[in-house]
């Protein structure tokens, strides 16, 4: 049943986010450390286990796939609720700092990718 897949997905997400929260708290931070990453690893493990209860294409798998397909609409909703007005009116210093940080990040992607290929 698709709902089994959705339940497993939700359980992985909750377990990962809570673990990330606890890791953050243990480091004395008000931030979630790696919660989504841990949740993704749990889901990947769940779909690679012997017996593979969560095969892509199985009824349970289709429940997970539905939410994976809902990803872009959710990101559009996320974009529509961002505080864009504050970003635009944040003053020259904020705009320059944010923009240069992005440019520097983009510039390093090909360099590190080349390193990773060695």
């Amino acid at each position: 049943m698709p709902v089994y897949g959705v339940a497993v997905l939700a359980a992985c997400t909750l377990a990962g986010l809570y673990a990330g929260d606890l890791i953050g708290a243990a480091m004395g931070l008000e931030a979630n450390v790696g919660g989504v990453g841990i949740a993704m690893l749990l889901l990947i493990a769940g779909s690679n286990l012997p017996g593979r209860p969560l095969l892509p294409g199985s009824p349970a798998g289709s429940g997970v796939q539905h939410w994976s397909l809902m990803y872009i609409p959710i990101i559009v909703a996320m974009a529509a609720r961002q505080n864009v007005a504050a970003a635009v009116s944040g003053g020259t210093m904020a705009i320059i700092a944010g923009t240069l940080a992005v440019v520097a990040g983009f510039a390093l992607v090909p360099l590190l990718s080349r390193l990773a290929r060695r």
Binding site: L9, A10, C12, T13, G16, L17, G35, V36, A39, M40, L41, L43, I44, S47, L54, P56, G61, V64, Q65, W67, S68, M70, Y71, I74, I75, V76, A77, M78, A79, A80, R81
Partner: peptide, 15 residues
């Protein structure tokens, strides 16, 4: 578009 659905859908993409 809040954090709950965003994280839920991001995790789903790892499938």
């Amino acid at each position: 578009g809040g954090a709950m659905f965003r994280d839920f859908a991001i995790v789903a993409t790892a499938f």
